[in-house]
Design a binder for these strands. Structure first.
Lengths: 147, 147
DNA sequence: GTCTAATAGTTAGTGTACTAATTGATAGGG
DNA sequence: CCCTATCAATTAGTACACTAACTATTAGAC
């Protein structure tokens, strides 16, 4: 295991967890890109669909809290998902301020296709599932720590 | 430790390593934001300075390989760093195609101030250094796996 | 019941990321 | 020597991500 000696050079690039995090994030998202491209989806859009497959309809606020995304980010993203035909957007009947984002039939159908994606990503990574579980656990701790 | 049962729902949001990675990356970068703001820097700009503090001048190509960034991303970013007065940009004498990106005196002076940043981030995270080292090691393995 | 504060989304502006096309410079083959 | 393929950087176009300002609606205080 690589040892990080903070007493030496605290600014050494190859010691920065923030650098490793952003490179790893972008690199893993890059693995999804060719898998999502046939559906016309970006990775953030895919995450929104994951949330909607768990529950639909959902408000922008709810999606934002679940995905840790700003409403200002979601608003145009959801319009693009609507233009692709995967979701519909309509004001909530009970509260005209809130938007009800729902899966369309096309959006629900997509789930079957998408189920193959996680396996392909793990295969492409070629890492042990146990190691990915460990990574997930540490990342969850980091996310908790940043709140 | 959280267990990820891939045999159950492969699309469950709270199991996705990609989601945890992107949230963790954004959350950690958010910790840097108030620390970098006094210098007018963004996190990607800070990473470029880390690279230049290790060696200067460097070409756009060299910076791109080191930081895993596209030249199309670096090109405007470097102009902003120049506008801030931290770097200078001039064509290489030996090869007119290449750009020599150098630290200015102001850019070199900034290093002293920046040395406090990693400690403040670790303090703010409130995690054990050992755990961050472990995270760094796993991330490095992920980055290797994506190449 | 009205008036104000809070809430849900949207819009605008800046700064990455990424792809593809473009410009200018260099190097090698003939 | 020239001609073409390659290379370094830039530009254009799309899509987040974040802050701040704005609009429309709702809820609470009185």
């Amino acid at each position: 295991m690589t040892s990080i000696d903070l007493s030496e050079d605290p600014l050494a690039l190859d010691r920065q967890v923030c650098f490793a995090l952003s490179v790893a994030s972008r690199s893993v998202i890059a693995i999804y890109r060719p898998l999502l491209e046939p559906f016309g989806l970006t990775h953030p859009q895919y995450l929104v669909l994951l949330a909607l497959w768990e529950r639909s309809p959902r408000s922008v606020r709810d999606l934002g809290q679940t995905l840790r995304a700003e409403p200002a980010t979601l608003s145009p993203l959801l319009k693009r998902l609507e233009a692709l035909g995967y979701v519909s957007r309509q004001r909530s009947a009970s509260d005209e301020r809130a938007l009800a984002v729902s899966l369309t039939a096309k959006g629900r159908r997509l789930r079957r296709e998408a189920e193959k994606i996680p396996y392909r990503v793990v295969e492409r990574l070629g890492m042990e599932v146990a190691e990915l579980e460990q990574l997930h656990a540490v990342l969850t701790r980091v996310i908790e720590a940043t709140r």
